[in-house]
Write a protein that binds this DNA or RNA. Structure first.
Lengths: 109, 109
DNA sequence: CTCGACTATATCACGACGTGACATAACGGT
DNA sequence: ACCGTTATGTCACGTCGTGATATAGTCGAG
């Protein structure tokens, strides 16, 4: 899939998809991603199995991640260059949202 | 609806819902929200009519927003105290996501 | 005065997504 | 032998944003 369509499809990204791709800066398998996300969100986010394996399959088809190794009972994925571009765009969007959140924060007290 | 269920239902929030509630720190009507969101996102986000009026109806039923005034062809909404609590929780979540985005940013270059 | 652009709201089908239940199976420790 | 954990997969379900379609009032330009 071309990068233009990927950006349109993946930005804005759901929180779930964001943390999955964030975990794949290092090669990881599905279950490892679940544990890693629980770790960096201090237990707040716990991904369901349907979410993980469904999302990984979809992302691989689209070419934002690729299979790093495929051993018995462990399919390890890593992010592709296209995936990195998508994440750069998503991080820029998050910065915008964060900026507006801070700017309007006092309105909610 | 009780605050506990509202937090569960609205956090995490979609980008669209976030910008709609953000716009309601001041009383605004549907069309005004669309224009305001386009403004503070520099034209990046343009909400569809289905999104706005569907979301506003849902949010009103849940009690996160309320009708401020209802003139001819202009229903003006504003955020409720419950809505403010929801937004405070959502802003905290955005700060966490932003923190992780910054922490892992170099992995995508 | 009429035409088009803009304001304003509403409804609906569609596709995409996360969730949790269910299923299966292998591993390690007690 | 048993159990908790690791590990993957599938499916129905509810939720959500989108864009098309419809309707109608306003307002300025020609």
């Amino acid at each position: 899939m071309e990068i233009q369509k990927l950006l349109k499809k993946y930005v804005p990204m759901t929180e779930t998809a964001f943390y999955i791709l964030l975990s794949l800066t290092e090669p990881r398998h599905g279950y490892g991603i679940i544990k890693h996300v629980e770790e960096i969100t201090a237990g707040r986010l716990s991904l369901g199995s349907g979410t993980i394996y469904g999302t990984l399959t979809k992302m691989q088809k689209d070419g934002v991640i690729t299979v790093f190794s495929d051993e018995h009972r462990k399919t390890v994925y890593e992010i592709t260059d296209a995936g990195k571009e998508v994440m750069q765009a998503e991080i820029m969007r998050i910065k915008e949202v964060h900026h507006n959140a801070i700017a309007f924060e006092e309105g909610f007290r």
